[in-house]
């Protein structure tokens, strides 16, 4: 029987100099909260747009002692989360977990975990679009100058128009915020529900955009102000009376899914449950032991 020799990669896949470059830019990003710092962004064995920015940050910071959690849509078992975790685990050998409280590094797409993160934890967010100004100024050269000069007037006009047309700030995810009173920042496609979790938090948030080749950061205890008007305040997706069909939580971000049910006329029905599956599982377990599980 022939054996295929497994190729040996550097610890964390990317080479040491590439890691160093990412590290240098992360330190600058922290010193300039909310400012987009360019980085070279190497090609990875994962497609651009599938988390290569977050991956490069994780690869540059990860140590053999770390405990890693990877989620997509809040779910550890989502196909992309599984795939990224597989690459990181193969090239670092670190311990992985689904428990938010047990992780030292959490890499995520589209969600911030429901459980508050501690000071010894780092959240790495995968970013598809980096610049909130892209909606009003697609040209990078001009947008960079606008950030440099805090020239955010056109963005406020955009926000105003959305209120007039839609009766609300018409931005669902990627909600723009002002960081530490200076830079306007894209919050990545996290729902509005998660935006204020970035405000004066205990944990460090690192944002990586591989295709757009930018890194930015929100340090702990840093102010985050969502763009809003006196008479049109920032609102989350929260709807009074919402409840998770699984764990009964009334204060989490829910997503809908179809449940197959042969008794039902349409072959099933729609239900809402927590998008943070690890948190939901924990609550289900607690409910089961305390016999308070909702039907």
């Amino acid at each position: 029987m022939s054996t295929t020799p497994e190729q040996l990669y550097n610890f964390g896949f990317i080479d040491e100099d590439s890691k160093r470059e990412v590290r240098r830019q992360i330190l600058k990003a922290i010193a300039l909260p909310g400012h987009q710092v360019p980085f070279a962004s190497r090609d990875l064995p994962i497609a651009r747009g599938w988390g290569t920015g977050g991956l490069q940050i994780t690869m540059a910071i990860i140590d053999a002692d770390d405990t890693l959690k990877v989620i997509d849509q809040g779910d550890d078992e989502s196909v992309n989360a599984v795939n990224l975790r597989r690459l990181l685990q193969r090239t670092t050998g670190v311990t992985t977990t689904v428990d938010t409280t047990a992780a030292s590094i959490i890499q995520t797409r589209h969600r911030i975990p429901e459980e508050p993160m501690r000071r010894d934890q780092i959240l790495v967010l995968q970013v598809p679009m980096v610049d909130p100004l892209r909606w009003v100024e697609p040209n990078l050269e001009r947008a960079t100058i606008m950030h440099g000069e805090s020239d955010y007037g056109r963005m406020w006009v955009y926000m105003y128009e959305s209120v007039v047309k839609a009766g609300d700030l018409r931005i669902a995810t990627q909600y723009p915020v002002i960081v530490a009173g200076r830079y306007m920042m894209d919050t990545t496609p996290i729902p509005r529900w998660d935006v204020m979790r970035l405000h004066n938090a205990e944990a460090l948030f690192l944002f990586g955009a591989g295709r757009e080749k930018r890194i930015y950061a929100v340090p702990p205890y840093t102010t985050i102000e969502p763009l809003q008007f006196e008479d049109f305040r920032f609102k989350t997706e929260f709807v009074a009376g919402q409840i998770c069909a699984r764990c009964g939580a009334q204060d989490t971000f829910l997503t809908s899914h179809f449940v197959v049910d042969s008794d039902h006329a349409d072959g099933g029905h729609w239900r809402s449950s927590c998008s943070d599956t690890s948190f939901c599982d924990k609550r289900v377990l607690v409910n089961a032991t305390t016999q308070e599980a909702p039907q």
Partner: peptide, 8 residues
């Protein structure tokens, strides 16, 4: 998957 952004 874009369940979260779509829900928002």
């Amino acid at each position: 998957p874009h369940y979260v952004t779509f829900e928002a």
